[in-house]
Design a protein around this nucleic acid. Structure first.
Lengths: 221, 221
DNA sequence: TGACAAATGTACCGACTTGTACATTTTGTG
DNA sequence: CACAAAATGTACAAGTCGGTACATTTGTCA
């Protein structure tokens, strides 16, 4: 309706059009994959038209790549919420783990886009430059926490920041990415509210146990 | 060529034909997903024809479902290799973790099929009965090891078999499923031979640390 | 205000893809 | 050996989907 009214005397707003297209595209690609998503359907859900998709994004692959990158931008944007001021290394490690868990859980489309991108062997991520520094930034945060913990004698140095980040990602990612098949195989218990709250604690504990020297400290908030 | 020679005076061998189709189908679906895979291409790589695909599997979705189930059958088949005789609970837990790690790593198509199935919200797995008892079987093995460990005072009872299995799967699955994007973001270090061997140990250690009462025991083979 | 560029609407095409109709061969069985 | 059922070969049809040609409108700036 909004669309129809605008057919005559419409205002130009390229940025809004692009943003609108991307939002719909992310949803559709996340839901159906690159091959499964339909350009016509994306266009239909858009406030503009298929014509504009090709105008701004060249082709389906261009749109997919842009959608993928836009999801990464969202991570970067929300990253400012992560406030580690005044936390000791153990508290900080707990906090960043919980943050990672929550972000994955609250952004299933981000998880799905990455899962889909892995099916394509990261072909589109490889050619993207936005990703690298975002990732290195996250690892750097973990690294600072980890090093501080070692200096203070709270952590031992048997691990490293990349491995820690890997493990956080693995647990938090899998929790969302494989929810459906896991439920199909083992019931919904682990993904109920109670199960998830327990799992969240379990993940934090797992990470802390990997680094900490004194295990008795872990159970404190 | 083989195919052409067989056009006259061919022998019927339904089971071999089905098996051959499924093998190709798994490869193609794992590589390109349900929507991305092409029936014509699957037929081409087959020793038989597109006609036979529809003859035995009704339609593309039927073929996909059959391919998915056939990959689960492979897990069941290879499961007999898992020999836990004469191992104490700690050794057994280590062994089943290593087995899980190795199986995922050596069967990327299995991992990919599950990742793809998750994109479809496990729609095809839900209607499949073969899966349930296979899964419950694996959890049962973990449960037996875990209970034995508790009885012998080696494990504490703060966790449970399903959570343990979940964590094993999460780490072993993610290692394979997200290899591409992780490499794209962080370099190939973790997936080099050295990195993987270290990661394998790390995963075993992580699992053991979640169950064991005496951490000093972990480092023994 | 006029002219050019940017942005958008509309209709359509050609290629690709799933699925089928029809014919033919093989195999098991009385 | 006849005959029906199972298995396979061949060609093609109907629909879908990505992409484009062409026309039109809006914005900008000299």
């Amino acid at each position: 309706m909004d669309k129809i009214l605008r057919k005559k005397n419409w205002k130009q707003d390229p940025e809004a059009v692009k943003a609108n297209i991307l939002k719909v595209a992310v949803e559709q690609f996340a839901q159906h994959g690159l091959a499964g998503a339909r350009v016509d359907e994306i266009a239909r859900q858009t406030a503009s038209s298929k014509r504009m998709i090709y105008y701004y994004f060249s082709d389906k692959e261009g749109l997919y790549q842009a959608a993928l990158e836009s999801e990464y931008q969202r991570v970067r944007a929300s990253e400012t919420e992560l406030n580690l001021e005044g936390l000791n290394p153990i508290q900080a490690m707990r906090h960043i783990t919980e943050y990672t868990y929550d972000y994955h859980r609250c952004n299933p489309n981000f998880v799905r886009m990455i899962a889909i991108e892995n099916i394509h062997n990261a072909a589109y991520l490889k050619t993207s430059e936005v990703i690298r520094d975002l990732n290195s930034k996250i690892v750097k945060i973990v690294e600072e926490i980890y090093n501080a913990g070692i200096e203070q004698g709270l952590f031992h140095d048997a691990s490293n920041a990349l491995q820690l980040h890997w493990m956080m990602s693995a647990l938090c990612f899998y929790n969302v990415s494989n929810k459906s098949t896991f439920e199909a195989g083992f019931g919904a218990g682990l993904h109920s509210a109670a199960g998830q709250s327990q799992l969240r604690d379990q993940i934090v504990t797992t990470i802390l146990r990997t680094v900490v020297t004194d295990f008795s400290i872990i159970d404190q908030p």
